[in-house]
Amino acid sequence: MGSHEHSHDHSGPEPLAARVQRMTGLNPACCYQCGKCSAGCPMAAETTLRPHDVMRLVARNRLDKLADADGLWLCLTCETCTSRCPNGCDPARTMDALREIFAAGKDGKPPKAISAFHKSFLNQVRNHGRLFEMGLIMSYKLGGGPMFADVTTTPSVLARGKLGLAPHNVKGMDEVRRIFAACAEEEAQP
């Protein structure tokens, strides 16, 4: 597994299946649509595109259909699909690759609240090296999360001594920032 080639020949737009295979090291066409992944998927009931649908659309290069799918963003990475796939297709890793592709492009944006959560989370890590939960909650709400959700429960969290009021910055902040920057730079290369 893993990405075997980091760049490709720019003779034309790279087909989706090839791009995903380059990222995951796995051929999406290996999926023979048995549906075992979707049978065990906890989010299958809430999404229009289940894991085996996603695998088929990737194999058929249907980036357009996948852009409209909420399933990619609802995926919890519970690894049930990957664990049970009889042909080693790793749908969970494929979901990650697709999220990465769509996050970098114009189409297929995640639902606002989910996107706001991930952005806020990573910003906390980028700025402090660790997750500062209080900062995450504030930044998530300001960044597009539901403003009044959990307003009544937050005091009870504080009362239990569960929320720190000040962030802890790791000593190796320079290294953490460099990791974020270097990953962004490398992923931005075609």
Binding site: S3, M23, L76, T77, M95, D96, A97, R99, E100, A103, F117, H118, F121, L122, Q124, V125, G129, R130, L131, V170, K171, G172, V176, I179, F180, C183, A184, E186, E187
Partner: peptide, 18 residues
């Protein structure tokens, strides 16, 4: 001086970061 593992957010945004 451990730092965050990236949890559920990093691996879905950049494989390398994750």
């Amino acid at each position: 001086d451990w730092s965050c593992c990236g949890a559920s957010s990093a691996h879905g945004s950049s494989h390398l970061l994750g």
